[in-house]
């Protein structure tokens, strides 16, 4: 299973940004109940076992705040694919 880590301190918040909540195909991201030192509310990830390893959240996050580490064997659960149209 891929590991998804939210680097909460650099996150600019689900309310104003929230791009991770939009691009995750499994809709795993939602607002957490925490606030970082900059005053933003980072996301929480529920049901991480459903992560497909597509890395959308990592690639779309504008603030380097999400890191997806692949399976132990280095593979993704699913192949990355280009979003079209």
């Amino acid at each position: 299973m891929p590991t998804v880590t939210v680097l909460e301190q650099s996150c600019k918040g689900v309310e104003d940004c929230g791009i991770c909540t939009f691009v995750c195909p499994a809709s795993l991201f939602s607002a957490s109940e925490k606030m970082n030192t900059a005053g933003y509310v980072p996301p929480q990830i529920l049901n991480q076992e459903k992560c497909t390893g597509c890395r959308n959240c990592m690639i779309y996050c504008p603030d380097f705040s999400i890191v997806v580490q692949k399976n132990a064997d280095g593979s993704n659960s699913v192949e990355e694919k280009e979003e079209d149209e």
């Binding site: 650099s10 309310e15 104003d16 940004c17 690639i59 779309y60 504008p62 603030d63 380097f64």
Partner: peptide, 20 residues
């Protein structure tokens, strides 16, 4: 230590796209 972009700005997506 931090980027100057506003929350949700597209610049950060482009930053990563270039570096990738």
């Amino acid at each position: 230590k931090k980027t100057t972009n506003c929350p949700g700005c597209g610049n950060g997506i482009i930053v990563q796209a270039i570096l990738r």
